[in-house]
């Protein structure tokens, strides 16, 4: 079975990767393997490089040293490889980044039509199906500016899913939302996790981590400090910095 061979090989493999912003060393010697269908939550204090790490995976940020291999393709300056990888890797941003001049439906169909060459009708059907999955099909003809933050983020998730990606990256998807809207977005993400999607999520929502993560990573000062399954991660963290971070984030 195809799935079996896939599950043994990692879909994302990062080997001894380094990144600098000018002379500032943001990511130090990162190594990480993500298997098909695995759900990883990355947490850590602000400025620890967690966003930069997942932005390196679809090359929104360029790494300077080490290898990143996504779907058996190495990330290099080669544009052809890059476009192929980007259409396989979906990304959801903290600030939604919907296209304000296009309707919700057009936001969802733009990339499938032009990048994948899907006929317009199929793209529309697919978009409506996914908008239904994130529970806002009735907003399809509105513009992003007319929706609430939570609705916009769900549209952003649907837009990424329209490219039928193999991997989804979430960069603090709930940090810009009002508390009452966080739940609707997290529920959507939990449902997505249940479909077996490979997910890398940068978030401070520890409840979400406990519920769906296969593995939780703690980063500080550009390094992966600790990686463990959620049960061990939350109940007996090994590293002192992890303990401190968890005490800060859980005790309020």
């Amino acid at each position: 079975m195809v799935n079996n061979t896939n599950s043994t090989k990692p879909v994302i493999e990062i080997k001894e990767m380094h990144k600098w912003f000018g002379s500032f060393h943001v990511l130090k010697n990162i190594s990480l393997k993500v298997k098909q269908g695995e759900r990883i939550v990355i947490c850590g204090p602000s400025g620890s490089g967690k966003s930069t790490l997942i932005r390196c995976i679809n090359r929104l940020e360029v790494h300077q040293k080490g290898d990143i291999i996504v779907n058996e393709t190495e990330l290099t300056g080669d544009l052809k490889n890059l476009e192929a990888i980007r259409s396989d890797v979906g990304m959801v941003f903290q600030s939604f980044n919907l296209f304000p001049h296009l309707s919700v439906l057009e936001n969802c169909t733009l990339a499938p039509i032009w990048v994948k060459g899907l006929p317009k009708k199929e793209a529309n059907d697919l978009a409506m199906e996914l908008l239904t999955r994130v529970k806002i099909p009735e907003q399809a003809l509105k513009f992003p500016g007319q929706l609430s933050g939570g609705q916009q983020q769900r549209v952003a998730i649907a837009r990424s899913l329209c490219m039928q990606p193999k991997i989804m990256l979430f960069d603090e998807p709930t940090s810009a939302l009002d508390p009452e809207m966080i739940k609707e977005v997290l529920d959507t993400m939990i449902e997505l996790a249940e479909t077996g999607m490979t997910m890398l999520v940068v978030t401070h929502e520890m409840g979400f981590a406990k519920k769906v993560a296969d593995s939780v990573i703690f980063m500080d000062e550009g390094e992966i400090i600790e990686q463990n399954d959620p049960n061990n991660f939350f109940n007996n963290p090994k590293n002192d910095r992890t303990k401190l971070f968890l005490s800060q984030i859980l005790n309020h």
């Binding site: 544009l79 476009e83 259409s87 890797v89 941003f93 990339a111």
Partner: peptide
């Protein structure tokens, strides 16, 4: 900047 990042992340090329 987020507009470009979103377009990049969806795999659109320069002209698109």
């Amino acid at each position: 900047k987020g507009q470009y990042e979103a377009a990049d992340a969806l795999g659109l090329n320069y002209w698109q």
